[in-house]
Each structure stands twice: as structure tokens, then as C-alpha cells.
Amino acid sequence: MEVLARNNVHMSGRGERAMVFAHGFGCDQNMWRFVAPEFEGDFKVVLFDHVGAGGSDLTAYDKTKYSTLHGYADDVVEIGRALGLKDAVFVGHSVSAMIGLLASLKAPELFGRMVLVGPSARYIDDGDYVGGFSEKQIAELLEFLEDNHMGWSAAMAPSIMGNPDRPELGEELTNSFCRTDPEIAKAFARVTFTSDNRDDLDKVTIPTLILQCSEDIIASEEVGKFVRSRIPGSEIVFLKATGHCPNLSAPAEVVSAIRAYV
């Protein structure tokens, strides 16, 4: 199916219910490599790349569509419908927490449970609201992204994009998990860090779990607590894991927290 190729959807595992893992800004579905396999015994595990990341179809990247998180949320809905998902578990890391949340508002039937790993409803400070970043810092980030091209070169792109799973590409695969067209990376960073979904939180009707890391500079505890306070009936679990990527740094803790919730 077109949608499944576009988003480089991979499925594995057995089980009635599906568990969809969505990666955040920075890398691709490999972010879940230590977590997703743990659920293959009980769930139909669904992994995908957002358009513009990993092995997605770069030609499907549409500047206008992906200039808001809704474009990404629409893709999640399309994937969910293409797979006939019902009552599935959505696990979204970082910005994909809000993408999944928007998708659940668009198509409430798809998901029965949501797990938000390191969510933030808004990254930039606003009055009393502490997002953790100033507008200037985000502007600097966008500029800084150009200093690291991850070895991206236009000539190389086709071999990477066409063969994300070919280990024989060896050296060329270096950084490939986090490599994408710099223009797209910059646009995705802009969408991510300028997003504001504070008003969407209280519309959520699906039971939601928030996994909050310690010492996470991207999504601080304060930010996580804000999300928890606005999503009706949501729960929060504070992880010992530090940093923004517990799915890589402390997969066991993440797995057991998800397992306990679903």
C-alpha cells in the first residue's frame, strides 16, 4: 500500500492488539530497537518513519502539509486506517507524543491507550508557562542544524533511501539513523520546536500515560507535569532514566512502564 511505503511501515509480532511506535525529531524508527521487540510476543508491533526521516519516501515530503504537526498526524491516521487499527496502543516519543495526540483527536477509534514518552505541549516559554527554551535559542538551533549535515550529500541520498536495511553499504550507513535532507531536518525542527498544543490537551478522551525522564532538557519535569495536569485522567510515571531518550538509554524501564499500563 502506498501509505505503508511512504512511511516505511514495518510490522512484526503476534497478538490481537497493535502497538504503534512513533519516533521523534532527530532520528528514525530505530529509536525503538530496544523497546519494540519486547512487545512482539503480545502485540502486533507497528514501526514507521515520519515522512522526511529514515527510510520514508522523501518525494512525498510536502512543505505545506508538513509545516504543522497536523500533517504528520494525518499520516498517522492514514497508517492506522490502512492497517485497520482499532483500540491500538500508541507510543509516541518526544514530538510524536503530540502528533499521536492530534491523530487521536482526528480518529478516536484508532487508539485505546496512549503512552507519551517525554512529551511537551510547547517548547518555547510563554508568560507563566515554562517550556524550557526562548525563541532566540530555537532560532539558534535552526541555524546550528546546518553545521552538522550528518554526512548528507545529495548524490548519496538515493542509495541510503533506497536501501535502509542493507548492511553491506557499511561505511555509508554511518549516521544514517539520524540522517536526512538538511532542509527537511530544519523544517521538522521548526515545526517541532515552535509547536503549541496546550489547547489540545484537554480534548483527549483516551487513557494516557506520560513517561517522564529525569534531567531531560528537551522536556523537563515541569513540562511533563503540565501535560499530565491538562489531559483528563492521565497518569504520569517518573523514570530514573536521564536525558531525552529513555527508549535507548533505559529500555527495560520504559518497557516495564508501558507493560504495566497496557
Binding site: G24, F25, C27, S94, L145, N148, D216, I218, H244, L248
Partner: peptide, 8 residues
């Protein structure tokens, strides 16, 4: 950048 790219 470190948290979203380098550390992963």
C-alpha cells in the same frame, strides 16, 4: 542537538 541526535 546532542540530546536528539548525538546521544541516540
Amino acid at each position: 542537538y546532542y540530546e536528539t541526535h548525538i546521544a541516540p
